[in-house]
């Protein structure tokens, strides 16, 4: 490989480059994040996510309060009001589904919950502070057998749509790659 002076010169230069690179990594490694804090994307992303969660909590606090006091109709109205500024926002859809579920308006509840999960998979995540896994799990356990039996008994496009939404939610709860 090293047949002449050019080879030896090039090999030497290569060694210098490699050594310089290693030296930079070892010597400057500890300063890297201080020099360029934007490189630590995990922290920035975590902060953005926390900000999103606390914004949602703040934005929908009146809805949650009304819901906790059992004032479901007023909570829905508050959501209608908020939807003027935040139309089709995932958390609003989730809360609407949750309230309609408590009011036993099942097809609409399922539709809004499925829409919320389509917009943001946070709601089926185990790790997310916004997770509603247990609520959705319970909904499927309670409603899927009933709706399946009903769909067998009668041909109804609306019922099929609700069933498809429930299957979608069931699939998302089952996990797998996204």
């Amino acid at each position: 490989m090293f047949k002449d002076r050019v080879d030896i010169l090039l090999a030497g230069l290569l060694l210098v480059c490699v050594a310089a690179g290693v030296a930079l990594l070892i010597g400057g490694g500890s300063q890297a994040s201080q020099l360029n804090p934007s490189l630590d994307k995990a922290i920035a992303r975590d902060m953005t996510y926390q900000a999103k969660v606390s914004f949602l909590e703040r934005l929908y606090a009146p809805v949650n309060e009304l819901q906790q006091n059992g004032k479901y109709e007023a909570a829905l109205l508050k959501l209608d009001e908020l939807s003027r500024n935040y139309p089709n926002e995932a958390h609003g859809e989730l809360l609407r589904g949750e309230i309609l579920l408590r009011m036993q308006v099942i097809p609409q509840a399922v539709e809004h919950l499925a829409k919320a999960v389509r917009l943001s998979a946070d709601y089926v995540d185990r790790q997310s502070p916004l997770s509603r896994r247990s609520l959705i799990d319970q909904l499927i356990a309670n409603q899927l057998p009933k709706l399946k039996a009903k769909a067998l008994a009668q041909e109804n496009a609306s019922l099929q749509k609700t069933l498809q939404n429930l299957y979608y939610l069931q699939g998302r709860l089952a996990g797998g790659c996204e």
Partner: peptide, 15 residues
Amino acid sequence: RPGFILFSQRGSAAE
């Protein structure tokens, strides 16, 4: 795990 490599905290990549 240098700072510019991203690791999901949620979703299927966190599994």
